[in-house]
Design a protein around this nucleic acid. Structure first.
Lengths: 244, 244
DNA sequence: CGTTTAATTGAAAGCAGTCAAACTATGTGG
DNA sequence: CCACATAGTTTGACTGCTTTCAATTAAACG
């Protein structure tokens, strides 16, 4: 399809999962001015305290949002996959309240904040789509509070794996054979509020129970239903009711 | 001031903390159709899985958002104070992904979803204000993930107390002598990802260190700076840069 | 007052953290 | 192709924060 010609096509497709767009809206998004850049793993895209003038969109690779405590402990507060916009926040908030980093090498499109903001204002369907996308991120964040606050290590890890699997699958980025989990065990620990050592033990425990299989960082799910049950995972909070 | 004549005045004031509004926008908000109702403590305002047709605004009293695990453990994912709108989510998402409950007896104004949505669409300043308000809630949610994921019980509790104090103070609802904390220790536990027993011990530990003083549920802060330091608390994530 | 709910305390158990070391994979330069 | 460096994974032993279970005390309520 012609859409795939534009680097922003995946972002548009992702927005349309929650909010259908008319062809002219789609066109307007696809023809937003933008520059392309490839970042190395762990590169900072946004730093807490700064005032981003650009809106970064992830085209390939993975990224995450992260906050640090005063003593330097890190908490990853969300994960991002290709197609995710990483800066919708900063269309309307000036100062970044968290850091955004690449997880892997990543291709990123950078859109001037004002161009996107004007588009959101002039075309209400686009404004809606951006708003809804932000709301879904908020819902995911609430689920993370629940996950970190009330589930034990096994369920917590299983939940993260399920979320990742479903989010990738919705965009057709997960194979039938599971997916390549791009996170080190230390990064998993920071996302789960655990230590790397305990993540290691927890992974091996899931593996021992036959709930996951690993080969390098490729993970597959021989007993998806059992993993979903252990994770206490439901897709409701992802708001996929209009997907497909 | 005349504004205070409308029950929605506090909500408007709260929106204006982040987004200044013109008089006509303010008028439009204040004259939104709405009904008033008083709820008892623990009353459900929104239930997960339902499709709210109304937008609830808290006029007096307190409320919280909450999710349950499959095994019935509860996690409070956000706290709400007078002036907070509890349903901006549902202007654009159909299905509720969490529960909303009153904490105390509370006066609530209920605005038809469509009326508010139309206003948000027709007046871009109001749409902005609602968006920004949602973004700030997202920021608070990220801070909660950090709080629950990476701080120990003492800092975690201290952080919650600091957040509450500042949010109340911004609206002029906290006295110099601290404030009436409307939560039971069990509710605190559910907000912090701890057990009620441990919350009790942690409160007493802060008290023993002279960081807080209690009288019934009234809490005051004789050594605010020390508490803030222990809590690792900064107001940045509340995005109050335009307040006052 | 009697009843119920919330707060408090003690003792014991457990999940996860800490510390330290060994092992594996990957990559680089000679 | 091997020696070496680096980053990530794995394992063991021990510690400790938080939970669990149970019982007591205090406060709130009709």
């Amino acid at each position: 399809m012609a859409d795939l010609a534009s680097p922003l096509a995946l972002m548009v497709r992702k927005l349309e999962i929650h909010t259908p767009l008319q062809p002219d809206d789609r066109e307007a998004l696809l023809s937003l001015p933008h520059t392309l850049k490839t970042y190395e793993p762990s590169a900072y895209l946004v730093r807490e305290g700064e005032a981003p003038e650009q809106c970064a969109v992830l085209l390939s690779g993975f990224a995450f949002r992260q906050k640090l405590t005063g003593q330097g402990m890190r908490q990853i507060v969300s994960m991002h996959i290709p197609g995710d916009a990483l800066d919708f926040q900063h269309l309307f908030l000036d100062i970044a309240d968290h850091n955004v980093q690449t997880l892997t090498r990543a291709d990123v499109a950078t859109i001037p904040r004002t161009a996107l903001r004007n588009l959101a204002r002039s075309r209400s369907a686009i404004g809606n789509a951006i708003f809804v996308s932000t709301l879904v991120e908020g819902s995911i964040s609430r689920e993370w509070v629940l996950n970190v606050g009330r589930r034990d290590a096994r369920s917590r890890l299983a939940h993260l794996l399920c979320e990742f699997a479903v989010r990738l699958d919705v965009l057709g980025l997960a194979g039938d054979q599971g997916y390549e989990l791009p996170m080190s065990q230390e990064q998993l620990a920071d996302a789960l509020g655990l230590t790397a050592v305990h993540v290691n033990r927890t992974i091996k425990s899931l593996e021992a129970d036959g709930l996951i299989t690993r080969n390098r960082r490729r993970i597959s799910f021989p007993r998806w239903d059992a993993l979903r049950d252990l994770a206490d995972f439901s897709t409701r909070y992802l708001h996929l009711e209009h997907a497909r």
